[in-house]
Amino acid sequence: MAHSSRDTVLPIPIFLSGGKHFIFSVAHASFLRAEYRIAGVLTGTLPQSPQQNVFLGLPLQLMAEEARLLVRRGVCFVVDDAAAHREGLRRLCGPDGEEERLQWLATLREMGLDAARARDAVSKSRMERALGKMETGRREQALRSLAARQQAETRQATPSEADSEDTLFPAYEQATPSPPSAPKPMSVSDDPNPLGVTPTTSHPPLPLPFPDDTATLPPAPPSYPLFAYLHSHPGSNYFSSPGLRFGCQYLVYPGDPLRFHSHFLAVGYDWDEEFDLLSLIGGGRLGTGVKKGFLIGGTEPGKAEEFAGHGDGEEGVRCFCIEWGGM
């Protein structure tokens, strides 16, 4: 693919908008997925297909746990995107940034021109293919009408018609018999109107953000140690995603969720937290019913200090898997 993971510059910016963590770059999303087993949740609309909810597009929303883990590892850093854009765009739209603004508008215009040319090429090739199909169906008819036409009429000059298309147009004309006049030439001019372009990311025109030393770790819920444990467990390839669909905290996948079903419904507890036996039964029953394991875990007190500072916060976590045995 165009986005090789080797090109990615670390650390990667995570953009904080409205208290949520987003990734807007395809390259970054693919990189985190392939290299760090961070899948996130695609929440945006795919403009190619905006009327369905099965396939979604950018931005990629990261759980607070995912953002925290990545920042802890030094892979990512968090940018306050609202402030960055407010400042950056105000400057660009002010008198100081006028030159840069015009430059960026020119770049966008170029992109729009490229897109327009590509679109025209596509519509042209599609038209040719459609006409070609029609020709195979009515080849003889078309040839006959072509001959008749060549005899009967002196062709009007249609300069943009390429020679190779000459044989196609009679068939086209016959298929749409409304006007007897000559078909309108398809005008594929060299310089079409540029399309408006809405880029996905803001860099450029804004300068790339750089990591800020003063930034704090993203806050994460108390179940974070379990998340970190499942993610960092040596030898495992676990991916985690929000578990709301199955009434748990994390859905744990044995590999990329693109290809695998989840194995566990995970819930994190404090070590001494008291909870109802019913919640165990409920989770176990649900998990077993959907062929997954119900997994609970928490940090054993005293154990965390032994390994302090060596991991992602998963030190001293123990897990238990519960299977409903029937009644």
Binding site: F15, S17, F22, F24, G44, L58, P59, D81, A82, A84, H85, R86, L89, L92, C93, R101, W104, L105, L108, G196, V197, T198, P199, T200, T201, S202, P205
Partner: peptide, 10 residues
């Protein structure tokens, strides 16, 4: 300036 998707979210 036209806003990018990212700018719109921000």
């Amino acid at each position: 300036l036209p806003m990018s998707l990212q700018a719109a979210y921000a």
